[in-house]
Design a protein around this nucleic acid. Structure first.
Length: 112
DNA sequence: ACATGTTCCTTAC
DNA sequence: GTAAGGAACATGT
């Protein structure tokens, strides 16, 4: 399965998200230096690193589940929520219940 | 509604 | 078979 350099960056960033936390397309995009969150979603569409590529840990900036497996919604979305719920990430009313579960990427800034 | 970046598909050479 | 152009997209402001 061939992956582009961009996809490699995206998955590298996504792979950094610890279990029990999530991130957004926009955040990932900004972290890898891309101005388009849409491009990130496009890269995540096919998951060459599945099931290791935690594409399910990437949600929309709106805190809505976002898409999964090539679909912006539908049955796959439920599966996504289920996987996240299994990791401790809870969704409520179609949105992330606890915003503190958002993972903060480290650019070049060390905390404390 | 429009903007931004990347990928995929179709058509031409 | 390779190159170029245009359309589509798991979004964000």
């Amino acid at each position: 399965l061939a992956v582009t350099d961009f996809q490699g960056r995206v998955y590298e960033a996504v792979s950094r998200i610890p279990r029990g936390k999530v991130s957004t397309y926009g955040r990932v995009a900004a972290h890898i230096g891309c101005g388009s969150a849409r491009a990130v979603g496009r890269a995540l569409r096919c998951n060459p690193f599945a099931p290791r590529g935690p594409c399910h840990r990437v949600i929309a900036s709106d805190l809505s589940p976002g898409g999964f497996r090539g679909s912006p919604g539908g049955a796959a979305r439920r599966v996504k929520e289920r996987m996240l719920a299994r990791e401790g990430v809870r969704f409520e009313g179609g949105r992330l219940a606890d915003a503190s579960r958002l993972f903060a990427f480290r650019s070049s800034r060390r905390t404390r």
